[in-house]
Design a binder for these strands. Structure first.
Length: 232
DNA sequence: GCGACAG
DNA sequence: ATCTTGTCGC
């Protein structure tokens, strides 16, 4: 393994796991990010199981207005294996990110950050690959345990693995299942929670994720015409 | 050996 | 992730 972070071609599960162990040591879990003016949401949808469609939507943090988006389609190379999600989705995401005119200051990814068996969920892996600050926003648990979460918007409970805090189980809205937040790269857990809440309005998912979901999935056209694109 | 298991 | 209608609750 020359560069332990590169995803080149198809890897066997064993190779992928070894790469994760090597790359995990490069993850930064303290705050090392610039002033955040724009936040992007990234998500991947699938067309007929064999084509991945990644969507990246950049929003202004102050009013959560979308300012730019990009979509990338790529043939699927790896199957979905719990713990190895990034190898399946990152190629398409990187492609979409490269299409942006201006890089966002922060990335909110669907899936875990360091709340992962080897501390390298898709958000952390994407952070290492791009060098960008990232946060993991999972809709369900991959690993770790936690106590009950108060049913009050903004409240959270630590997610831990062997008495190590790897994330937070956050109630983004009363009466709905909580979200699993964790540091991706260059963002601490407290800061991650703050930014996620800053992107939440009246729904369970932050606006970044809602926009990316909509565009990555089928009815993307409906969401696209709602964006006043400033691209040619 | 028997579960658990992001999207 | 994706397949899918109506329905319960604030």
């Amino acid at each position: 393994m020359e560069d332990p972070t590169v995803i080149s071609g198809d890897l066997s599960p064993k190779q992928a796991i070894q790469l994760q162990k090597d790359a995990a040591s490069q993850v930064i879990t303290y705050d090392d990010l610039p002033t955040v003016k724009t936040v992007a949401g990234v998500d991947v949808g699938f067309e007929n199981r064999d084509v991945a469609r990644a969507a990246v939507v950049v929003l202004r943090l102050d009013d959560l207005t979308p300012v730019e988006y990009a979509i990338a389609r790529q043939p699927v190379r790896m199957p979905y294996i719990p713990g190895l999600l990034s190898f399946r989705e990152c190629p398409a995401i990187l492609d979409a990110l490269n299409q942006l005119n201006r890089k966002p200051d922060l990335l909110l990814c669907d899936g875990q950050g360091i709340a992962h068996p080897r501390r390298l969920g898709v958000a952390s892996h994407l952070g290492i690959l791009t060098g960008m600050p990232t946060i993991g926003v999972g809709k369900s648990r991959l690993t770790g345990t936690h106590g009950p979460v108060p049913d009050i918007k903004g409240q959270w409970t630590p997610l831990e693995d062997d008495s190590e805090v790897i994330g937070a189980v956050l109630r983004t809205r009363q009466g709905v299942k909580p979200l699993y937040i964790s540091s991706g790269h260059r963002v601490s857990l407290p800061t991650a929670i703050e930014y996620v809440m800053a992107c939440v309005t009246r729904y369970r998912l932050p606006e970044t994720t809602r926009w990316a979901d909509g565009i990555a999935s089928d009815r993307g056209q409906n969401w696209l015409r709602a964006i006043k694109t400033d691209r040619s």
